[in-house]
């Protein structure tokens, strides 16, 4: 049974139960998420939609262990991540989550392959093993020929593909994408969505994607709408 007295779904990878998130601005409390429940099954591709300020990115941050709920619980697989310490959370993120950001967030001082290698620096892999993983990830996003290029010499679409390669290079349990096509033109955006869809269908990656774009959400297997910090609907997958 979960916090709301509902029976927990045994196939769920992500379980968000009774979550509230309150930010404090001076003496004012801002309730961003209110008593929110969400489950995502392994292998699902879920789109989170909603107007600005509805709490989409905050929810994504909670699921990715970047922030903690004010109340409620967030579990990924067998891990109750809201109860982990900062250090445990960092280690957990390195092992289980890949992030893809709207503005790519590549380090400008590193080449594409070095950016992709970053999460692997936190593992015990040898240099040769890291190189092999990086080559595989770059091949999956079709950017092997741009490995030695710095982000400033890549197009927006290429940078986002490097961002995705960085997100999947450790073979994470969960890929979290925060408006991955938000800064791209339609063509590049479509390429990114094709890639995410392929990762979901062919590699079985569980993906949660925040988006404003109905065209993007149409690629997901399920769309969840948020409105004023609460789920507007959660159709069964």
């Amino acid at each position: 049974m979960n916090a709301n007295g509902k029976k927990a779904d045994p196939t769920a990878l992500v379980r968000v139960e009774g979550v509230e998130k309150v930010f404090h601005r001076g003496s004012e409390d801002i309730h961003v998420l209110s008593r929110l429940d969400l489950t995502v099954a392994t292998g699902e591709f879920v789109a989170l939609m909603g107007p600005s300020g509805s709490g989409k990115s905050t929810l994504l941050n909670l699921i990715g262990g970047l922030d903690r709920p004010t109340t409620g619980s967030v579990s990924i697989g067998d891990d109750r991540i809201d109860a982990l310490s900062d250090r445990q959370l960092a280690v957990w993120r390195a092992r289980h989550v890949g992030f893809v950001f709207q503005l790519y967030n590549l380090l400008p001082v590193l080449t594409a392959e070095r950016n992709v290698e970053l999460p692997l620096l936190l593992t015990h892999l040898t240099k040769a093993e890291r190189r092999r993983h990086v080559e595989t990830a770059l091949a999956m996003v079709g950017l092997t020929h741009r490995a030695k290029h710095y982000p400033r010499t890549l197009s927006g679409g290429e940078q986002q593909r490097v961002g995705i390669a960085r997100g999947i290079v450790t073979d994470p349990t969960l890929l979290l994408c925060d408006e991955p096509t938000g800064d791209l033109d339609r063509k590049s955006g479509d390429e990114i969505l094709n890639l995410l869809q392929a990762l979901n269908r062919e590699q079985g990656k569980t993906i949660i994607m925040v988006t404003h774009d109905p065209h993007a959400s149409a690629r997901a297997s399920r769309t969840v709408h948020l409105y004023k910090g609460q789920l507007a609907s959660e159709p069964t997958p």
């Binding site: 990715g64 993120r93 936190l122």
Partner: peptide, 12 residues
């Protein structure tokens, strides 16, 4: 950028 490093798993 430091936030990105932390997001991908770098500890404090």
């Amino acid at each position: 950028e430091l936030g990105v490093l932390k997001a991908i798993g770098f500890t404090n």
